[in-house]
Design a protein around this nucleic acid. Structure first.
Length: 273
DNA sequence: GGACAGGTGCGGT
DNA sequence: ACCGCACCTGTC
């Protein structure tokens, strides 16, 4: 394994980045180390007092994966001007980076995430990789669309997916040979419409795929946590279905990152301030 | 043992 | 278009 060390950790915290809910395939090894899986690749991230070290056979891949080429300082400073609430949670969550994750992997993982809890999502994803993913030196790869399409609904039920089994079987079949490049070339609004045509993808899951799999910052996934945040800190009388567009209008291009800050603070600390 | 999970699809207005 | 509701299952 090779290593790369990052010394500018002002806006890069491994714990914040991995535990803010954008990724399910990681494990905490000890106080300072996390292992991360993406597609068929693997890395160990070690935090020391003055740096973070990435150890992997695919260091370049993980530098992009961790969005290390992007300067977050301007974004964070701008978000801190979005009122008291954002100022407080940006200070706590400023180490979060929006990962560049694989699009197919995001589609499948976030279909599994619907009306589910993180522990069980990780359990199901782990069973999925172990059962049909290709073996790698460090574990099992995330399955390809072809590998998933070979399995039927009963298989996905057997790994604990519940009523999402049908969604996984049907959507993975539809994604064999799918033109992802075309999807990536679309505007955020058009890509969102296209994603909503897949079984198992509703508004919230579509926004997660756009944000985590396509790096579109101008979306705001609304789940139960963000509904709580809205009602506690932003109440302006919107119906649930309008909360996402309310935040998109409020935060513009920074909406996605703001959502991660708010989600993380609410979940980790039980409050924003 | 019940409520809750990073909601969605479906049928009824 | 807009509700209201059922829904797998692991965890707290």
């Amino acid at each position: 394994m090779k290593e790369i060390t990052i010394y500018d950790t002002q806006n890069f915290d491994v714990c914040d980045t991995l535990e803010c809910g954008q990724i399910f395939r990681y494990n905490k090894l000890d106080d300072n180390r996390y292992e991360v899986f993406s597609q068929d690749k693997y890395a160990v991230l070690t935090t020391s007092p003055d740096a973070v070290t990435v150890a992997s056979d695919d260091c370049d891949y993980f530098c992009n994966f961790l969005d290390l080429q992007t300067d977050y300082s301007a974004k964070v400073n701008r978000i801190k001007t979005y009122g008291k609430v954002m100022e407080a949670c940006a200070e706590k969550a400023k180490g979060i980076r929006i990962l560049n994750q694989n699009l197919f992997e995001m589609v499948i993982c976030f279909i599994i995430s619907a009306n589910n809890n993180i522990k069980r999502i990780q359990l199901i994803v782990d069973r999925l990789c172990t059962a049909i993913g290709s073996k790698t030196p460090y574990g099992y790869a995330f399955p390809t669309a072809e590998q998933m399409a070979e399995k039927d609904e009963s298989f996905y039920a057997s790994i604990g997916a519940g009523y999402r089994a049908k969604y996984l079987a049907e959507t993975s079949r539809r994604l064999v040979g799918y033109d992802f490049e075309n999807l990536l070339s679309m505007s955020t609004a058009d890509a969102r419409k296209e994603l909503l045509t897949f079984l198992g993808i509703g508004p919230k899951v579509a926004d997660c795929i756009l944000l985590f799999g396509m790096h579109r910052g101008d979306v705001f996934p609304v789940d139960t946590w963000l509904k709580k945040v809205y009602h506690a800190y932003f109440e302006q009388g919107h119906k649930d279905a309008e909360i996402s567009s309310f935040f998109c209008n409020l935060f513009g291009e920074d909406a996605g990152l703001c959502q991660q800050y708010l989600f993380y603070c609410q979940r980790k600390y039980g409050q924003i301030g």
